[in-house]
Design a protein around this nucleic acid. Structure first.
Lengths: 253, 253
DNA sequence: CCATCTTTGTGCACGCGTTCACAAAGACAT
DNA sequence: ATGTCTTTGTGAACGCGTGCACAAAGATGG
């Protein structure tokens, strides 16, 4: 979700729920694979399996786009690829800038899946003067000083931030001031942006911590593993009590 | 969420909702920053602002961990850092392997935030024999052939996949067979895993597509921009009706 | 010791997302 | 044309997550 102060219903304006939008790229990827194998039609069941979701959910998702299926047969692959692409706005060209060309920024610039669907790396920007002019992934790195001009000259509306945490908010502010309205943030910081600007974040460290949590749970329960009700197995010390705890917590000094 | 066939309630076993778990790392980061500035206590309001969330949500989140606050004062920063760290399992050491040392894999290996909290890059693995032995981020790359041995020797339970899409599922299968039970997937593929294995995916291309969707919406509505209720502007054909729809959908040909 | 003021913890209501289950729609065979 | 069979599209129920609003708890001052 957007990080700033977005208590708005977000996407309801056009009826497509946010959760559905987030899955469309998944469907698109599966459909593209089918298309390359020249498969003419798919059932919701097959496509759902390929996309890793429930078939009912997939059908409901598609129902928000309109009735593109044929009962008794399934969905026309090519047609659906087109419809989803159009819905996602991938039929047009999206120039993107990447700010912060360190390890990660360079990896992103080289990432193939970037250019694939309508996205084009229009410029690479870094604050280090030593980087200026040096080509990364065939694109010369430009200095931060020219950020505003680069954004405007290329009509960029999507920016990718791959700077260190400390630089992220200032860079973000400049991007927004220059006209960027969508930001993909790889820096481990909460960005605050004005209304109307979308921010999505990709945070490696957070993902790992979430995995660690589940990993710890699995390790702590051993034995019962996948069984139905692990119930109250002996737990480690951890201010633990009954499931519906109301026991006063022991405050430390 | 996990990608395989996980229709399970997931995390309810121990009472902490998944959504809350996903925010704990955010709180932890904000708290760590406060701790470094030697701030002794924070109110839910302040901390919520720092983490970019609603204060009521934050309080409810913390309530799942226990009653760690003091009314009229707020939360003890150090204590809370410790509690969340422990809850997330960050007080122990998590050896991690990265499979696929291309641009992205190398960037991940060099990523500082990796080693920061309990996570340690135990090994780098790549299928290219030419890479074998070459040090990346100070760690020698090992060949895929030794994958199983490496996992077992190091007691690795978390694996990071940064291979090309085609190699991801086979690598995943081998990781799981060798004992890995949590996977962070950067490859643009849906991984299927057995029950009990958690998969989280980070997909650059999907994030961009979601941004493009919103970007397109913004561009399509121009004028009204941020206004309150765009209401029923002229819509394209798309079985659209009132907000609380029960109107029979108009089927197109 | 009592009054006041701050901030937590949570009961409650609401809305979104998921899933079930089934009627409607079309393909296909006879 | 009619019947059967497959698969879609969706109404309805349910559960989770969010946010409001307030009572309880404790700090602080007189």
């Amino acid at each position: 979700m957007a990080t700033g102060r977005t208590h708005r219903p977000a996407t309801r304006s056009r009826g497509i729920p946010e959760a559905t939008v987030a899955r469309l790229p998944l469907y698109l990827r599966a459909l593209t694979a089918l298309s390359e194998r020249s498969v003419p039609t798919v059932s919701s069941e097959e496509l759902a399996a390929a996309a890793g979701v429930n078939s009912a959910k997939l059908r409901k998702d598609f129902s928000y786009l309109g009735s593109y299926g044929t009962r008794g047969v399934g969905y026309d692959v090519e047609y659906l690829v087109y419809q989803i692409s159009r819905e996602l706005g991938l039929t047009q060209d999206w120039p993107v800038v990447i700010v912060g060309i360190g390890n990660l920024g360079a990896a992103l610039a080289n990432y193939g899946g970037f250019a694939s669907r309508g996205f084009r790396v229009a410029a690479l920007i870094d604050a280090d003067p030593a980087m200026a002019g040096k080509p990364v992934a065939g694109i010369p790195v430009q200095h931060t000083d020219d950020l505003e001009r680069i954004i405007q000259d290329n009509g960029v509306s999507i920016g990718v931030i791959a700077t260190p945490a400390g630089a992220a908010q200032p860079v973000c502010d400049r991007l927004v001031a220059a006209g960027v309205t969508s930001i993909l943030n790889f820096a481990p910081t909460v960005l605050s942006v004005p209304d109307g600007v979308d921010v999505r974040k990709v945070d490696l460290s957070i993902e790992l911590q979430i995995l660690a949590f589940h990993e710890q749970r699995k390790a702590g329960e051993e034995s019962g593993a996948d069984a139905a009700v692990p119930a109250a197995t002996a737990r480690k010390a951890s201010a633990e009590q009954g499931p519906d705890g109301d026991v006063p917590a022991v405050m430390p000094a």
